[in-house]
Design a protein around this nucleic acid. Structure first.
Lengths: 348, 348
DNA sequence: GCGATTATTTGAAACGTTTCAACTGAAAAG
DNA sequence: CTTTTCAGTTGAAACGTTTCAAATAATCGC
């Protein structure tokens, strides 16, 4: 018994099936098989069925390298990941949303570091020049973000987290920070607060402008006193933020209402206030944007507005898929509205 | 003037230079150029120099798809990312460490979701079958992790975060949770606590066994009373953990020392204790492992042990690079020791 | 039944590498 | 002056796709 063919095994052992394997098995040419699998209408329907059946039986899956070499498309989406982000679960939630949407589409996600301090254009240039991806997602968008300009010039698909001030439209997903700031002001005033304080992100980011505008217009509407902190930003070291917050408490007429755009800032503010003998919820109120459920487990409880970063990631991935499929950029936007109520409140 | 060659421009406009471009420019054959760039000693030194100079001038960078097709190597590392992780900044820190090390090596990182509840083998199978990566990194390793078994059988390079109980050696990076648990017990006893409580991760994970062993042996050494919570795990919903913690407070002889293996658990425990009128630091103490700086901004301050996840990511990426380069697995381990002191203490 | 149209199928080329096997010259050995 | 050796170089094949242009088979009008 020197037979070395095992029973009905249809495929060579250990070998990855290729288009040729299918071609040989079905009797068609490689070109036909390729077309059939692409559902090319020029191929007879019966043929398409036979071929895709054979493909399924063999467990055929196209070789990405070969396809990529031939077509120039990489089947890769790159995420420029901020090295210094201030939300606690930002990366995790965001990434989960993205992979959620991309699973099963054949696209994979690569992560490339993006450091605001350094040249933010550099990773983008590398991706374009070396053809490392078919599309790019990124965060912390600037008003005249050079990355956006570069990609628009090259017609390269991307979706930004945050808007820009360019006149040419491009796909984006954003949170309505203007409304958040406005509502926050009104809410604090409603609670009887009279001197509001706001720490902003760096000026270069578009959402900084939105926050400022929302804050300022609400402040004017209500006539409340206010202060926009200038000696620290949202991205300052936590120790510096704490220091600045405490320092301001010792001035005459210190703030009694704090709007925090990030979780870390909110925690720092809470702690700093406590450390100088101010009880949040009594002598002052803190109102924060949050992206994680952590504030349910923090005392004192403060009011928060939830920004769903997983949904943001999902929306961005969806917009990008559609953009890569050739849709024009005009309609590819999503603006997340702040939920109407405030969570975790403290007075009813 | 119908000349269409612009001054000294050495490269066709807009076209990506390839081996052939270099070959034509230097007068060598494509094969020679390829070998020269690979620093093959069979090629004359002068030739190698000429070729690599030309390559640099042209800004040549090898096409990944072509190389991948020819060699079968993908130049990709996959990270199996846990969908339900409990450390707050885990993903971010970890990923930053990995990309730190991989930058400039030519490898890129793709992220693939891994859900403990579902079939954890599935993503690995896909990667192996479709040749999507040259190496895999993953977390939450189980005692007899089926992923480890599969990859070992196939001789596929990987590094696990956490050890296994297989006898065959494989590369891993781990935190010494046994010592952490042991020290935590001793520290709480030192502070006068007499009834310790521990919430463990699910039993399947190796680090659960290490924690239990460290805890149990220290508990025996010191003769202190203890309890290992059975109705919730580290990964239970935060509400359930809070509930369980409160419930135990109403039993006779409630615990007065809490060891928390994760940040979320620590926060929940602190808050739950506060909610039932127990002041951490007075009637009870909480001791936690932490991976983010957040506990500096939480009151009451508690003692923590720091696990550096960025360093962990870096170490894992390094081990993987060496493994992919062919090093045997035996020596490719890193065990991070818990730092000796406890940060953010409350009594000196 | 015959040319003209249409529906299917196909061989071959190309994408940019790496690598095998063979070739060229020149120096060393006889 | 021939033969051997060796350093250096090279043409061609291959990796698995997609797609152009052309071939073949089937259908149609008359």
């Amino acid at each position: 018994m020197t037979k070395d063919t095992d029973e009905t095994a249809p495929l060579a052992p250990g070998e990855r099936p290729t288009l040729r394997t299918i071609a040989e098995q079905t009797g068609y040419a490689v070109a036909t098989v390729s077309r059939a699998l692409a559902n090319d209408p020029r191929i007879a329907k019966t043929t398409r069925e036979k071929v895709s059946l054979a493909a399924k039986n063999l467990g055929y899956v196209p070789d990405r390298a070969a396809r990529r070499l031939r077509t120039g498309r990489t089947q890769v989406v790159s995420l420029l990941l901020n090295t210094e982000h201030e939300f606690l679960g930002f990366t995790h939630e965001f990434l989960t949303g993205i992979t959620d949407v991309l699973r099963g589409t054949g696209y994979s996600v690569t992560v490339v570091p993006d450091t605001v301090g350094k040249d933010r254009l550099d990773p983008v240039r590398t991706i374009l020049r070396n053809n490392l991806a078919d599309g790019i997602l990124f965060t912390r968008t600037e008003c005249f973000d050079p990355r956006v300009r570069l990609m628009m010039e090259n017609g390269f698909p991307f979706v930004s987290h945050g808007r820009t001030e360019f006149t040419t439209p491009h796909p984006w997903v954003d949170f309505d920070n203007e409304t958040f700031a406005r509502k926050a002001v009104h809410r604090l005033v409603e609670k009887g607060r009279r001197r509001l304080s706001l720490i902003l992100p760096e000026d270069r980011f578009t959402f900084t402008q939105h926050l400022r505008y929302g804050f300022m217009s609400a402040v004017r509407e209500t006539g409340v006193e206010y202060e926009i902190v200038t000696d620290v930003t949202l991205d300052s070291a936590t120790a510096d933020i704490a220091e600045a917050t405490k320092r301001r408490r010792y001035r005459p007429n210190p703030p009694d209402g704090y709007i925090c755009v990030g979780e870390v800032t909110a925690l720092v503010t809470l702690t700093a206030l406590g450390d100088v003998g101010v009880t949040p919820g009594v002598e002052a109120d803190v109102l924060a944007k949050r992206a994680s459920p952590i504030f349910d487990n923090i005392r004192p409880r403060i009011e928060t507005v939830f920004e769903d970063l997983r949904a943001t990631g999902r929306a961005m991935a969806e917009m990008l898929l559609r953009r890569m499929a050739g849709e024009p950029p005009e309609a590819l936007n999503v603006l997340f509205r702040p939920d109407t109520g405030f969570c975790g409140d403290s007075d009813h």
